[in-house]
Design a protein around this nucleic acid. Structure first.
Length: 422
RNA sequence: GCGGACGUAGCUCAGCUGGUUAGAGCUCCUGACUGUGGAUCAGGAGGUCGGGGGUUCGAAUCCCCUCGUUCGCCCCA
């Protein structure tokens, strides 16, 4: 191949694309039931937006962003996630001035310069919701319910929901306590965990090093460091989830990587996926809007990975049969019949059916074979004989039966015979 | 960014320790069936053996580099 696609990008085709479209449809359907309205934001933003919101020290910003200068010398970044841009748009368009909570959902490609593997691409798709303006724990619970219904709608199961709270400022004092706990054994940590110890101690909690895990067994839990307010908020979220019958685990080791998270955080993973198994991640970000220059406004949301959901769907074989691409196939025989067949094709399409014909001058046999392969409901045969009678032959592909219809009634006849919902 | 595996036709793969024009199945096209699909049979099309370099009389096969995919780490959706 001469010019292959860039690493970590994909051409979406066939079943994969069908899965994507189904996921996007389920997303808007479910999200709108929860009162979210669609929003589309730029695919590139000023680099500064992500540095300020996601956090300069995070991996996403420090080594995974596609940042470039445009011809005017502006520093721009291909969006690595959707929350920052949505928050920016809400501020910029004055969407936060009304009293009630404002809810938005987005869908689109995101970009991160990571090492690709199954379920992780440099261009990947997310759909997500953001709710601004309320700090009610019920909104936290609702956000999780929304994610759950979304996954249910796609028949993705079983699913593991994990909940935690990182507090507002408490994560910092907790991180210090964690470091204090591990300090005596610092030399026993692996090189990777030593780096985490220095840069992002909370990350130690999901270390896979068995040695580190052992050292953490008696470590303090963030739950013990939450302020009364944070603790009460978390309790309220749990009560709401319990009341709604949601099965989840309280997991103090859940640490979200983006700096803007405060309080409630959660992740939903699917067992069938392997290493990249988190399909939904989200949480509360009460400081974000203010940080981006808006009035202090609480917020919460989640992002779902469409690529991973599609993988989970094929892994679970929950992709349903799709309707045939073509319902009616026109078979023209001979040069004189072609223009008339072409006109008839147009009428059939105008009558609302998916129809097509051969443009490669192939024989009757081949044309019918194509009709068969495309799973067309009908083949319409038009040759000298039919032209002479002013009729078309309608062949029902499922049983091979044929009937004749006057040319000017053919489209209407098909409209009645072709199954409507396919 | 780190470690491992893999890369032969559109797809799934074969090709023994390097040896003449690189194979099979499926798919596709044509015909048997001069205007009728799904079956069968016959023929055909389709390959820079991921790319580059090296070793050799000779490389799909051995070596190096590179690109890509994949598994794990990391990170995260």
């Amino acid at each position: 191949m001469n010019i292959p696609r860039p690493r970590g990008t994909r051409d979406l085709l066939h079943e994969t694309l069908r899965a994507f479209l189904r996921i996007e449809n389920a997303a808007s359907s479910v999200f709108e039931r929860f009162g979210y309205q669609p929003i589309r934001i730029p695919i590139f933003e000023r680099a500064e937006l992500f540095i300020r919101s996601v956090g300069e020290e995070t991996d996403i910003v420090s080594k995974e962003m596609y940042t470039f200068q445009d011809r005017g010398g502006r520093d721009l970044t291909l969006r690595p996630e959707g929350t920052a841009g949505t928050a920016r748009a809400a501020i910029e368009n004055g969407l936060l001035s009304r009293g009630e909570a404002r809810k938005f959902y987005y869908t689109g490609p995101m970009f991160r310069y990571e090492r690709p593997q199954a379920g992780r691409y440099r261009e990947f798709w997310q759909t997500g919701i953001e709710s601004f303006g309320s700090n009610d724990p019920l909104i936290d619970a609702e956000t999780i319910l929304c994610a759950q219904l979304f996954l249910d709608e796609l028949n993705i199961a079983p699913v593991r929901i994990r909940l935690n709270s990182v507090g507002s400022g408490e994560r910092h004092t907790y991180a210090d306590a964690l470091k204090q706990h591990l300090q005596p054994n610092f030399e026993n940590l692996g090189p990777q965990d030593k780096a985490r110890f220095e840069n992002n101690a909370l990350r130690l909690l999901d270390s896979k090093d068995p040695n580190t895990k052992r050292m953490l067994e008696n470590a303090p839990s963030i739950l013990d460091f939450l302020s009364d307010e944070s603790r009460a908020h978390l309790d309220a979220v749990q009560n709401a989830l319990d009341a709604a019958g949601v099965k989840y685990q309280l997991d103090p080791s859940i640490v979200r990587g983006l700096d803007y998270y405060t309080g409630t955080v959660f992740e939903i993973s699917v067992d069938s996926l392997g290493a990249q198994d988190v399909v939904v991640g989200g949480g509360r970000y009460n400081g974000l809007i203010e940080q981006l220059g808006g009035k202090p406004t609480p917020g919460i949301g989640f992002a779902a990975g469409i690529d991973r959901l599609a993988l989970a769907m094929s892994a679970q074989d929950s992709l349903e049969e799709t309707s045939p691409l073509i319902q009616v196939w026109i078979v023209a025989i001979g040069e004189e019949a072609k223009p008339r067949a072409f006109a008839l094709l147009n009428e059939i399409r105008r009558a609302g059916m998916r129809a097509d014909m051969d443009y490669q001058g192939r024989g009757v046999r081949s044309q019918l074979r194509t009709a068969d392969r495309l799973n067309a409901h009908y083949a319409v045969i038009l040759g000298e004989d039919e032209l002479a009678r002013g009729e078309a032959t309608l062949k029902k592909m499922s049983d091979g039966t044929q009937e004749s219809a006057p040319l000017d009634e053919t489209a209407a006849r098909l409209r009645q015979s072709v199954p409507t919902n396919t």
